[in-house]
């Protein structure tokens, strides 16, 4: 009994520094912004308690409503496209790497390299490449496709897709490696049994490999949801805080920053509304995480 309390004390002693850091850096600001979101603000000074009024404004009144749902729609777009292209692509790359295609060690490294780059550097360089007279349009002209040149980051209808593409370019190595590791972990006897029974590669992939790597797929999905909700740096470096052009690249991250802190060229801070948006981002992320933990738990039992 005594030994157990001593043990507990030691455990507490060792985790307390980490807990303190988590409390000060994560929990405290979180509750501060929740607190701030319940008040009206006169510029930078907190005024009266107004309950959920700021949240009501974000959801139901102009102009906040239009901006918020426009931004949320873009976050949705980020999620869907990232899932479809980055994660499906990552799965295929992972599969081919696991089949030990020629020079797979080389490919593995090359594909993973951009993951190590800083987001800001990637955003800045790609915004140079995507300029009207940048590398991308130059390349299109050289290969004889001048009709495909576009203002990649200036055209409302494609700006978001351009930025998502850049992010996929940067990040696709990550799901690829996760799926590669998962596929490599599929027990050899399962595969051998399937092959002995005369199953084609395609059949083996869909009927044996895919069901066995579901936990990895779930983890990547959850990370994609969280990543899509928190998109900020990519927009900030490539399109600016205003989600230019014409709010077409706005996400709740940039909307939050702009509302809470103001942007130099076009606005004053509205801390109450900004905090409310911050809390909404937190809640959405929290729900996604809870759903994932529940979902993951179930899948593990199945295995």
């Amino acid at each position: 009994m005594n030994k157990r309390t001593a043990e507990r004390r030691w455990i507490l002693f060792f985790i307390s520094p980490a807990l303190a850091v988590v409390f000060v850096i994560i929990l405290l600001p979180l509750f501060m912004s929740l607190f701030n979101s319940l008040f009206s603000w006169k510029q930078l000074i907190r005024q009266d308690f107004i309950g959920l009024e700021n949240f009501r404004k974000v959801f139901f009144t102009e102009p906040y409503k239009t901006r918020f749902f426009n931004a949320l729609k873009n976050n949705g777009l980020w999620f869907i496209i990232t899932m479809l292209i980055q994660n499906v692509g990552g799965l295929l790359i992972g599969y081919f790497l696991s089949r030990r295609v020629w020079a797979h060690e080389f490919y593995k490294r090359v594909i993973f390299i951009p993951v190590l780059f800083s987001i800001v550097a990637v955003g800045f360089l790609w915004s140079l490449y995507l300029r009207p007279n940048g590398l991308v349009n130059g390349f299109l002209k050289i290969v004889g496709l001048p009709q495909l040149t576009r203002a990649w980051l200036g055209d409302e209808s494609i700006a978001t897709f351009s930025i998502i593409f850049v992010n996929i370019w940067r990040w696709i190595g990550f799901p690829s490696l996760v799926f590669l590791a998962a596929i490599d972990n599929v027990p050899m006897d399962c595969l051998e049994a399937a092959w002995l029974d005369g199953a084609t590669d395609r059949r083996v992939f869909f009927k044996v490999i895919l069901p066995l790597i579901v936990p990895s797929i779930l983890i990547i999905t959850v990370l994609t949801i969280i990543g899509s909700l928190n998109v900020f740096e990519q927009i900030y470096t490539m399109a600016g805080l205003d989600g230019a052009p014409n709010f077409s690249t706005d996400t709740i991250g940039t909307l939050f920053y702009r509302t809470a802190f103001g942007s130099v060229d076009s606005g004053n801070p509205e801390i109450g509304i900004g905090s409310a948006i911050g809390v909404i981002i937190y809640l959405l992320t929290f729900l996604a995480s809870v759903a994932s933990i529940v979902g993951l738990g179930k899948k593990e039992v199945e295995l």
Binding site: P63, R67, E156, D242, A244, P245, N246, F247, T259, D265, S266, G267, N268, E270, I273
Partner: peptide
């Protein structure tokens, strides 16, 4: 105030 006239005209002129 938000949305400032500048925010509005900038986005609308882009459109």
């Amino acid at each position: 105030n938000q949305p400032t006239g500048s925010t509005l005209i900038q986005a609308a002129l882009q459109g």
